[in-house]
Design a binder for these strands. Structure first.
Lengths: 137, 137
DNA sequence: TCCTACGGTGGACTCAATCCAAGTCAAGAA
DNA sequence: TTCTTGACTTGGATTGAGTCCACCGTAGGA
C-alpha cells in the first residue's frame, strides 16, 4: 500500500493528508468498507476530514483502478482495495459478511456467443450467497 | 401472468386494483423496471396509486418468489418478473440496458470447498458487462 | 348488506451520495 | 526560502431511493 501512494503520485496525484489517510484505512486483505466506515476510520486519524472528501477520494481510486466498488445488497457500496488480483465475493445472507473468493475457471467462458446478443462482453462479476458458519450455528 | 393473480389469490392475497395493475405492468420478457418506472406505468392505468403501495407490492412479490430484485449498478433496484426460469444478466456499460442470459454450466460448481470458508453456499448471481451493439456503434 | 381486518394513502423521514461556493494548501517556479 | 496558483477540501444544502406511520378505505367472508 505504501507503493500505492507513490504510484498515485507518479500519475500526478496531489498527495494530501486526507488522501493519505483514506488510502491507509483501505490497506489490507478482506477489507470491504462502506464510504461511511472509511470516513469514521479516517476521522480517527484526521478528525477534520469531511465526508465529501472521502467520497471524492474513493471515486478517484476507483477511476484509477486501485480500488473496486462492490454493491452486494441494495445498501451502501463497499470499497475493495484488492483490485489487482481478480476475485469474486461470497456474502452471508444472515449478517452480510463478505469474503473474497477465487472460483475455478473463467465465468466469461460460460456465456456462449448466441447468448451475447451482439454485446462486446468484457467482464463478469459473481456473487455467491449463503450462510456463514456463525450465522448457521 | 394471468395465472399469477390466481396463484397469489390462492395464497390468501387480497386482490386489489392496485396490486392488479402492478402485476400487469410487470408482465413480459426482458422487463427490468425500477420501482419508480413501475409507479409511472401503474399510474397511467390507476392515477391515484401511491408510491408506497408500489413499494409494498413489489416487496411482497419478491417475498413470494414471483419477482426477483436485481441491482446491477449502485442506483435503483430493478424488478424482474422472470423468476421461475433461472437466469443471469448482461448489462451494457454504456446505456445500462439489461438482457436476461442463460450461461452454460452451474456457477456454484466453480466454487471449490476450500473456497467456501464454511459457508452453506446456496446461490450465485452473475452479472456480465459489456457494450451493447448500439453503444458500440 | 354489514363488518372488519387487511390494504392504500400521502407526507414526513432516513440513508447514501452528490453538488457547490468559498476557503485552503501542495508543490513547482523564482 | 517564499510566492503563486490551481487543484483540493470543507460543510451545508440538495437529490434520489426507499421506508415509516397514523389515518382512511374497501375486499370479501358472514
Amino acid at each position: 500500500m505504501s507503493d500505492l501512494l507513490e504510484r498515485l503520485r507518479g500519475r500526478g496525484w496531489r498527495l494530501t493528508s486526507q488522501r493519505r489517510v483514506v488510502a491507509e484505512v483501505l490497506d489490507g486483505d478482506h477489507v470491504h468498507l462502506t464510504a461511511d466506515e472509511v470516513h469514521v476510520l479516517a476521522a480517527e486519524r484526521l478528525p477534520e476530514i469531511s465526508r465529501a472528501t472521502v467520497y471524492n477520494t474513493l471515486g478517484e481510486l476507483v477511476t484509477l483502478g486501485e480500488v473496486v466498488e462492490v454493491s452486494t445488497d441494495g445498501r451502501a457500496k463497499r470499497y475493495d482495495p484488492n483490485a489487482h488480483r481478480p476475485h469474486q465475493h461470497l456474502v452471508c445472507t444472515g449478517c452480510g459478511a463478505i469474503r473474497d473468493v477465487h472460483p475455478l475457471g473463467n465465468p466469461l467462458a460460460d456465456l456462449p456467443a448466441d447468448q451475447r446478443f451482439g454485446f462486446a462482453v468484457s467482464g463478469a462479476e459473481v456473487t455467491y450467497r449463503g450462510l456463514c458458519p456463525s450465522c448457521a450455528g
